[in-house]
Amino acid sequence: MSQISLSAKTSPLRRLSFSRVGRRLARFLSFFQGNPTGAIGGGIMAVVVVACLTAPWLTEFEPNKRVARPHVEPNAEHVLGTTRQGRDVYSQLLHGGRTSLAVAFIAGSIATVISILVGIAAGYYGGRVDQWLNFAMNVVLVFPQLPLLIVLAAFLGQVGPTVIALLIGITSWPWGARVIRSQTMAIRQKEFVLAAECMGESKLRILLIEILPNLTAIVAGSFVGVMMYALINEAGLEFLGLGDPTVVTWGTMLYWAQSSAALYTGGWWEMIVPAVTIAIVGGAMALINMSIDQISNPKLKTGPHLKRWRKLNKAIEARRQSGGGL
């Protein structure tokens, strides 16, 4: 009797947790279903991230060592050629991508954390808290961001990737904070928030467990947005020579290509490779962002609805024309 109940207790539990993982995965994948923008963007990002993370296995060359003659054309050994200093571009691309993506990720995380804290607090508490936080948001918003970054970077002297990530992170949270704030204001009116308050839930739990999960799409959207912005601006700062040129990133690759006049001396690949990569990765992030928008904002949704709408329009048009002909 006890044996039976024991086995009956454990096995469904195990099956349950297994099917939960499966369902999670299915839900994650269903995000991309019928959502080509997201699938393409996510696919590109996945390939790039995996390639950068596995860089040591994908290339034998050190990114920062002279491994061949300068400006060797792309060939079987150096698939993307070498730089003016005789470094392997392919290796630089993969290793530099680690740093560039890390900067984007860290900046995105910092900005997202600040925007969540500020946005949710302002939206939930309202009143004085909201006024002050709104004021802070506006102050940060009115500074033109890229010039500010240039001035700060120039002031600090050639800044490393960590400092760049910090700078971008703490200057680009207000956009996310605004959206999160307004969405929080809408959600806090909902009855499930009132119910949680009546129940005696703590404020922290209401904010983080009742409200925040309802903001996932917005938070993800602003995270990817800041990542994209950070990727491009980090490259921009380093290209201008404000970054630390001894660190390999996509931005310093551009800097070296520029300072060694790669395009004029025939080493076009040294310039084109990082430039195109930044464009592709930035574009992939934009695609992901768009697909998040489409999902969280049903008005932008394509698919069967739009098709039906087009069909209906066609039918109306056809009827009108045939009616006019008669």
């Binding site: 909902k190 009855e191 499930f192 009132l194 119910a195 949680a196 005696g200 999960p213 309802n214």
Partner: peptide, 30 residues
């Protein structure tokens, strides 16, 4: 707390009174 426990509310809109991100189990267990 004692009062909050003993006086419970049922809201008008069944679509607004349950948090869409939590399972039924969580809503009742909480």
């Amino acid at each position: 707390r004692e009062f909050a426990r003993n006086v419970q509310m049922i809201f008008q809109d069944p679509f607004g009174s349950l948090n869409p991100v939590h399972r039924v189990f969580y809503q009742v267990a909480r």
